[in-house]
């Protein structure tokens, strides 16, 4: 086993306001380098909160206990400037709604190049060159897209966001419901694209989704969460074929009921049998 990608140990978060609602309850998750992990569960399960903790982002109104170690760094104890450097060098986030992820007031070029320019002191020309290369990787026409504004590339905007993420060569990609806000056709493209870029770059991937099939098609291991706790962890195959928890079984049933397809061979989880933790 290689060096650990991240280790979340006993992470608990309680909202200070109101009645002290607990949003995470002693969550422990880990992954090794290059692995793709799926965090699945319904909304409110705490999967987004867990994923964001990997970036050192915690809700301002929450009391936080436990440790989050990413690539050997204890991110929750970092001061602001160190945290900034940690994020700049190691991680990239892909959020749910691409239209909300890109500042509508600036051009796409600014979005793609600003992290490289600010964090690595790249020249405008060099940052632009790398941005163009990243756009090609995600199948967009660099010349056209670099000159556009966000509202002009409505269809391919999530691919722009993915390009921006891979352009900074992160060691950990965090995708938070990356396909949920998209139409059905783009969902498939974005998910397969995500799998491809993560594999090619060798970066680890944390995929947050409520869709178990999406997770299964991309991830080596799955973490099932419910109401702030981890219900079950295992390889994708284990979780899908021999779910231990009643809740996981219900989740799988629900997905099948909606998709209508119960053909086991077509189930994308079958493709991933590698990388047991």
């Amino acid at each position: 086993m290689t060096e650990p990608l991240f280790e979340v140990e006993d992470l608990t978060m309680t909202l200070r306001a109101g009645h002290g609602k607990t949003i995470l309850r002693s969550v422990s998750v880990g992954a090794s380098a290059g692995e793709a992990i799926g965090l699945i569960g319904e909304s409110g399960a705490g999967k987004s909160t867990t994923a964001r903790a990997l970036l050192g982002m915690t809700p301002p109104e929450a009391a936080v206990h436990g440790t989050v170690r990413v690539l050997g760094t204890d991110v929750l104890s970092l001061r602001r400037s160190r945290l900034q450097r940690f994020r700049a060098e190691n991680v990239a986030l892909i959020a749910q709604d691409p239209r909300a992820s890109v500042n509508p007031m600036h051009g796409i070029e600014v979005f793609l190049t600003e992290a490289m320019r600010a964090n690595r002191n790249l020249s405008k020309a060099e940052a632009r060159r790398r941005a163009a290369a990243a756009l090609e990787q995600v199948g967009l026409d660099p010349e056209k897209v670099l000159r556009s504004y966000p509202h002009e590339v409505s269809g391919g905007l999530q691919r722009v966001v993915i390009a921006a993420a891979v352009a900074v060569e992160p060691r950990l990609l965090i995708a938070d419901e990356p396909s949920t806000a998209l139409d059905v056709a783009s969902q498939a493209t974005v998910i397969s694209l995500l799998r491809r870029v993560a594999r090619r770059s060798g970066a680890g991937l944390v995929l947050v989704t409520h869709n178990i099939e999406v997770a299964a098609s991309v991830c080596d291991r799955l973490v099932v969460m419910r109401a702030g706790s981890v219900v079950e962890t295992g390889t994708t195959d284990q979780v899908l074929r021999r779910p231990l928890a009643e809740y996981t079984r219900a989740l799988i049933e629900a997905t099948r009921a909606v998709s209508g397809a119960t053909d086991r061979d077509d189930f994308p989880g079958n493709a991933t049998e590698s990388a047991h933790a």
Binding site: M57, L83, R85, F86, A88, A100, N119
Partner: peptide
């Protein structure tokens, strides 16, 4: 509180 601001912060851009 816009999401693109959160994303910008997640990229480690200077405050």
């Amino acid at each position: 509180v816009r999401e693109h601001v959160e994303l910008a912060r997640s990229r480690g851009l200077p405050n």
